[in-house]
Design a binder for these strands. Structure first.
Lengths: 218, 218
DNA sequence: CAATTATTCAATATATCTATTGAATAATTG
DNA sequence: CAATTATTCAATAGATATATTGAATAATTG
């Protein structure tokens, strides 16, 4: 194989892989799957996609080795193929959120709307873990919590939050988190809890970022 | 901004950025620019692109904040916009080369063709630096060497290699490197030098990867 | 200032991507 | 086994991306 052939083959393959993740719908699917496996229906419920369209996007991801699947009964469950991919995906997100002015602006506007600027980052969180005066709150659906969560976190899904206020003390500082920077559940939690007079901030990132950080530092 | 609007805006922006790098020609341009700035003509010479086409691809990269440019005389010099992007790009490469079976195969076939398997990686290199019996050889064009190179390396561009054999001793171990995993210059150097009876291996990665590693560990 | 050189711009045909629709398949339930 | 449910497949129209061509700018040189 001559130099040019080799280069063409490599760049074509690379471009093909990148193309498979360069689509808003597929990025949202990837974000969902970074929480654990989901059925096609599960994905459809959380997005604006039709079933056929979601399935089609999943085929693209499957053919590019981004996701894998298993069948159980009549359901097909999809999940990300590896932690290495997850780590790459999060590098992309981090770059985008910090280096692309347009996205940074959208992100900050969202946070301002939700009065949730002043977020805690993962390094700060580490110094707070174990502190009796800090309550780490996971507001994702409980399946996602069961699939994996930050050590020491308490699970109260967003839709149950208002009926579980009794668990909280106004003296403790509450740190809410969900799926990552794009996830709006934690923002909502900050909004409603701070309106009720609780001391609450959100975590900058989410469970997947925490998990990757654990893997990298081990 | 409602949750869905926010998500759509973020994923659209993210997809737009990723699309701008999901093209073989643009990836090759990025790879070139990771060596330092280049004029449009410089890029054309090293690729199969026409001038108009290269310029068009550069506009796409410029509009997505991947590259920046400066004008000098009648020339326009392009370069990557930040080390953060370079680091992301290299994460993509590393993922692709190690996790995408198809690309791994192409890569290994290329290396076998050039009898340069047994490559040295950056960690191994570190233990060898300063060793008098090791010669670190940079075979990139000299402009690129001047723009930046691995500490302790000696510059002999590939096209001058045969006329400079007198500098080498057959007792020393030679480690050749160039631009990175996709760069074929080091493979060629290994091929010709080993045919002449020198002890020579190539570095797994290239100058940009070394530079990023330096930045990250500081 | 005419000629040359480097780069960009504009128009276009072809190829590729995407969402939608409706049908096909395959497993489960009554 | 008929009905239901979850998923995939196939066809298609409209949108977007790409390489090519030739012309337009803009700076430099003689």
């Amino acid at each position: 194989m001559k130099g040019r052939e080799f280069k063409d083959a490599m760049y074509d393959g690379l471009a093909k892989m990148l193309k498979s993740i360069s689509n808003p719908a597929r990025l949202e699917i990837i974000e969902m799957l970074s929480q654990g496996e989901k059925s096609v229906e599960g994905i459809v419920q959380a997005t604006n996609l039709t079933i056929a369209n979601a399935s089609q996007h999943l085929q693209v991801l499957k053919n590019n080795n981004i996701v894998k699947f298993r069948k159980e009964k009549q359901y097909v469950y999809y999940s990300l193929v590896s932690d290495d991919f997850l780590s790459l995906y999060q590098h992309v997100i981090k770059y985008a959120v910090h280096e692309i002015a347009e996205l940074e602006k959208i992100m900050n506007r969202q946070r301002e709307d939700n009065k949730s600027l002043n977020a805690v980052n993962l390094d700060e969180l580490e110094t707070m873990i174990g502190d009796e005066n800090v309550l780490l709150l996971d507001v994702r659906p409980s399946v996602e919590f069961e699939f994996g969560h930050i050590t020491g976190a308490v699970s109260i899904p967003m839709n149950e939050l208002m009926t579980h206020l009794k668990y909280f003390s106004k003296d403790k500082e509450i740190i809410a988190y969900c799926r990552g920077p794009f996830c709006v559940l934690a923002d909502e939690a900050v909004k409603v809890l701070s309106e009720k007079g609780y001391k609450v901030r959100r975590l900058d990132e989410g469970y997947p970022e925490w998990k990757i950080k654990q893997l990298e530092s081990s």
